[in-house]
């Protein structure tokens, strides 16, 4: 946790220490909640997309509060892209496995008992794949539009120049 302390004391990147401290406490809860929504998607409201967006929002809050350094060291754009693609492939693979039961996307696993975590066959697996995919791609979209948009910083400068002229 020394590393986190250092990040919080660091006044150059990110927001004020108050925000950083609060985010540090909230982070864990956000991730647990996101994971819960993904894993229990077949039993309660939610599912892959909703949970994935919550997880991605966790990373986005991390980026906003601590600056890009910490977030990119935890979840870099390269890994976002790799997880994005492999999660889509996992989802398709689940579909292909269905061929062994006769049809594409056939639910071939046992349905299990009602209200149990391990039930409903392949649907929880699909939810996990979708959750990974959405986490990675929403975070990648955020990165592309904000940090790696090399034009964005330039954009803000231009805008300020324009307003000064007026």
């Amino acid at each position: 946790m020394d590393k986190m302390e250092k990040y919080i004391r660091d006044g150059k990147s990110g927001m004020t220490p108050i925000v950083k401290t609060v985010v540090r406490f909230v982070m864990g809860i956000i991730f647990i909640f996101g994971a819960y929504v993904v894993l229990y998607g077949h039993l309660t409201p939610g599912g892959g997309f909703a949970g994935g967006v919550i997880l991605a929002c966790g990373f986005i809050i991390l980026t906003l509060a601590f600056g890009k350094g910490l977030a990119l060291s935890k979840f870099s754009d390269k890994w976002a892209s790799i997880i994005d693609n492999s999660a889509a492939l996992i989802f398709l693979t689940i579909g292909f496995i269905g061929f062994s039961g006769g049809y594409f996307f056939m639910n071939i696993l046992g349905k299990g008992k009602e209200f149990a975590l391990f039930s409903a066959g392949t649907i929880p697996l699909c939810n996990i794949a979708i959750g990974l995919k959405v986490t990675a791609s929403v975070f990648a979209v955020f990165l592309t539009l904000s940090i790696f948009g090399r034009f964005v910083s330039k954009l803000v400068d231009d805008y300020e120049d324009d307003t000064e002229k007026e």
Binding site: S81, N85, A88, L89, L92, G95, F96
Partner: peptide, 15 residues
Amino acid sequence: AIPLAMAFINLLVTK
């Protein structure tokens, strides 16, 4: 399924 799968495999392999 084939073009979808190949689209994602393509992005992974070309890394």
